[in-house]
């Protein structure tokens, strides 16, 4: 297994290089470094020297992919692409265009992100699984039908509506929670209640729809029928047999998102003013700050690949017949 993990990590390298190459190509198509400099330096009085200094301070005064002025190995290494992307592999993200150290920002901001994303993930999973179990228990009844209608309806509503509506009702109309904001201690709870509830609600419909199908399939298996024939109560069947067996495909299915929880949610975080990585990314996009976008793309690729790896490993744990070679 260790050799498998090692090999997979090795395979990740070309993928990460590909990702880097792709983002570089995209972003420098958009803006030449001169334009980035101008956007950063502001509106009034920009002189060419200032632009030059700005580029130099950030290492953007090199050619993009190939440096014709150098010989041999240096034609490739003395370029923006090489300089910037090699550093990513040792998690040296450099500074934002505004001069903030990106790694520090990431370290600082991932906790607020996690504070929202993790509860949303766990509570959401628990609630959806619980409801779908109940639904399976009452299968082929009016109850099931109405719950499923509600689920499809909830699933068909854009998350924007939940956020806008929730903020309007709970924050403005009823004064139950702060409209937005965040503090970095236990007081953060009151800021988190609403985003977490909204996150759970907006994921609820979709979750129940999937888990119900998984549990339904499980419920049609022979061992359940046997158990029922033995006279085991419906609840015991549900929670002693159905639940643990259905949980395996669900868990192996969701493992892939666990590492990416650090990245937070783009929209929720900006709406609620939570200083997490999601809002960091959005700010980067809006300001066309290439160094932020590049770092976040790289980071999420790494986490995604990690998620895939975890999925493979979780399969072997769930089903001992699977061997990773």
């Amino acid at each position: 297994m260790w050799s498998y993990i090692f090999r997979r990590s090795f395979y990740a390298l070309p993928i990460l290089i590909g990702v880097n190459f792709f983002t570089f190509a995209l972003f420098f198509l958009i803006n030449s470094p001169d334009q980035m400099a101008q956007a950063q330096l502001g509106i009034k009085h920009i002189s060419p020297e200032a632009v030059h200094e700005w580029k130099k301070a950030r290492g953007y005064d090199l050619p993009l992919f190939v440096n014709d002025e150098r010989n041999g190995f240096d034609t490739v290494t003395e370029t923006i692409f090489f300089e910037k992307s090699v550093r990513l592999f040792i998690f040296d993200f450099g500074k934002t265009d505004e001069g903030r150290v990106i790694l520090d920002e990431i370290k600082k901001r991932m906790w607020p992100s996690l504070a929202v994303a993790l509860p949303v993930f766990l509570v959401g999973l628990a609630v959806s699984i619980f409801v779908s179990l109940i639904v399976v228990m009452f299968r082929a009844s009016l109850f099931e039908f109405s719950v499923m209608v509600v689920c499809v309806a909830m699933f068909s509503i854009s998350s924007m509506f939940y956020i806008i509506g929730g903020q309007f009702l709970f924050g403005k109309l009823w004064s139950l929670v702060p409209v937005s904001g965040f503090v970095a201690d236990i007081g953060a709870l009151k800021f988190l209640v609403l985003p977490i509830i909204i996150g759970v609600i907006s994921g609820f419909g979709g979750g129940v729809r999937i888990y119900r199908i998984i549990f339904l399939e499980e419920a049609n298996k022979d061992y359940i029928r046997t158990a029922r024939a033995k006279g085991v109560s419906e609840l015991a069947i549900l929670f002693r047999h159905l639940f643990p067996n259905g949980l395996i495909p669900i868990l192996t299915g969701v493992v892939v998102v666990i590492p990416t929880l650090f990245l937070g949610s783009l929209v929720t975080e900006s709406f609620f003013g939570i200083p997490g990585l999601g809002s960091f990314t959005i700010d980067g996009i809006r300001a066309q700050d290439f160094s932020i976008v590049r770092s976040m793309v790289f980071l999420s690729s790494v986490l995604y690949i990690l998620g895939l790896l975890l999925t493979d490993i979780s399969y072997t744990i769930a089903d001992p017949r699977v061997r990773l070679t």
Binding site: I15, G18, V19, F22, T23, L263, L266, T281, I285, V293, M296, V297, S300, S301, Y304, I305
Partner: peptide, 10 residues
Amino acid sequence: TTLSSIPDVL
């Protein structure tokens, strides 16, 4: 794999 490891929004 490369394409899908880049977050869609970005």
